[in-house]
Amino acid sequence: MVQFSLLMTILYLTLIIFAGSLLAGLLGSLTGLGGGVVIIPMLTLLFGIDLRYAIGCSIVAVIATSSGSAAAYVKEGITNIRLGMFLEIATTTGAVAGAFIAAYTQPNIIAVIFGCILIVSAFLSLKKKTFHFEGQSKSRLAAFFKLNSQYPEKDGKTIVYNVRHVSGGFFMMLGAGILSGLLGIGSGALKVLAMDNIMRIPFKVSTTTSNFMIGVTAAASAVVYFHRGYIDAGLCMPVTAGVLLGATIGSRILTKADTKWLRIVFAVVITFLAFQMIYYGMNKKLQ
């Protein structure tokens, strides 16, 4: 498959990668999984591009989509900025650590870990979202860090919520940060999981706050990747533009479309890609 793109000129490769990234951004935004999970298998498996360049491109695309959508959410006042800033201590520390681990880890091993995380993400994307926040909580840490908050509903009602298990959520975020730095993904699924299931935050707040944090987390990894030479200008151009355009279109359709079937199809595709990545990591000799 490596030969596939050897026959291409830069112009053709750029156009095809742009089209693929547009599709990845569209699907990523419709299913809530983000663009990174498709970009990396596409670049490596289909175009035979080195995993390190693929990771560098993906992290830049992640920053673009996260910042683009965070702009709208922040203005609506749903994002819990204090909670986001507090947890960013964990995610950025993890991201920098992960990006350094990546530099000393065989790309084959990274490909296998990537595959495993893809399977987990696919599974999580199918799980039914349960609404379980509790009004009462006596978390001292949450009170100390002023994490308990409120957000406006569409009908004008204000919903007050409390945050639980602050330290548990913090450690989970550290893990999400490490994976983000190691694999070049936003790891939004894990961030939402930490806030939903551990910290018991309403779903709307956890998704928007996770999105708010992804940009900073990815920027922390991107700084390390940049110095290592993983961020290639010629390759980042079509990927970033494609993913961003796809995600923008996706967020426009999202409010109208029923995404249940799409989620299932996408989860199957992701799982297939995951096994491909694991196979690739185990059998292909990478530099």
Binding site: S5, T9, I10, T14, Y230, G234, P238, A241
Partner: peptide, 22 residues
Amino acid sequence: VLISGFIYLLQSGSQTPSYHLF
């Protein structure tokens, strides 16, 4: 990125890329 990318493609679009190996 888009403006400079467009110029880049005009200049070196016909060359062969080398992204297979880091």
